[in-house]
Design a protein around this nucleic acid. Structure first.
Lengths: 110, 110
DNA sequence: TTAGTTAATTACATTTCGTAAGTTAGTATA
DNA sequence: TATACTAACTTACGAAATGTAATTAACTAA
């Protein structure tokens, strides 16, 4: 039988979750909380590949969460930063930070 | 050249993001904030398929975020609920809720 | 000329996801 | 007795997302 999708879920909340639950999105925004930075800086701060970082930054720019600023120097410098919309995610990320310190266990050694 | 992964990322935070940025994880926990409920209730509240819901609930149980309670009635009733660790995620989800109301636009029509 | 840089893009194999159908165990209906 | 229905899964399989590595463009430096 077909599933009629009559979820009572708020569309704005659903959209937010769609963006934020994509792999790497949260970590990229978290990284940018420490200030505007270049592609290679984000790449070396996170265990993400260039291919996906490029893709995610494009998505986040589309969503108005990240700003891409080109400085036409030699060689060209491109800096990524958070927009107001992106900065507004800081409280959420701080909550995850708090939760992780209290509840997440890391198993050491082997 | 090989990428040496010397990320200064806190392992607990990274682990938290790994769990929470999996597709559907956040929405399932959000749904369970409204109280213990059965598989089919979650399934019809969210646009998720049975296959993935089953998989995610198993993951979340493993992580100690969700509890699976069997009531040996006829027919058997199985209820999923949040553990303390899971309930502790409420503030984070409320922040996403707030953010989505302020910043997310939904385009209507076509 | 060769090598190195940044910010990507492309190719390709692996993993995850979505859709649909099937399973198990029991109840209800004709 | 046969058929249909329910809950909670599981299986099969094609499609989409991801990870790894190589390549590109435009420029500098040795």
């Amino acid at each position: 039988m077909m599933k009629l999708n009559q979820s009572l879920l708020c569309p704005k909340f659903e959209k937010a979750m769609q963006i934020l639950s994509k792999r790497w999105t949260g970590l990229i925004i978290y990284q940018l909380l420490s200030g505007p930075q270049r592609f290679c800086a984000i790449e070396s701060a996170l265990p993400i590949s260039g291919r996906l970082l490029s893709e995610r930054l494009k998505d986040l720019e589309q969503e108005g969460i990240v700003n891409r600023q080109i400085y036409p120097e030699v060689p060209v410098r491109i800096e990524y930063s958070l927009t107001k919309k992106g900065l507004a995610l800081e409280p959420m990320l701080r909550e995850i930070e708090k939760w992780s310190q209290t509840w997440v266990q890391i198993e050491e050694g082997l």
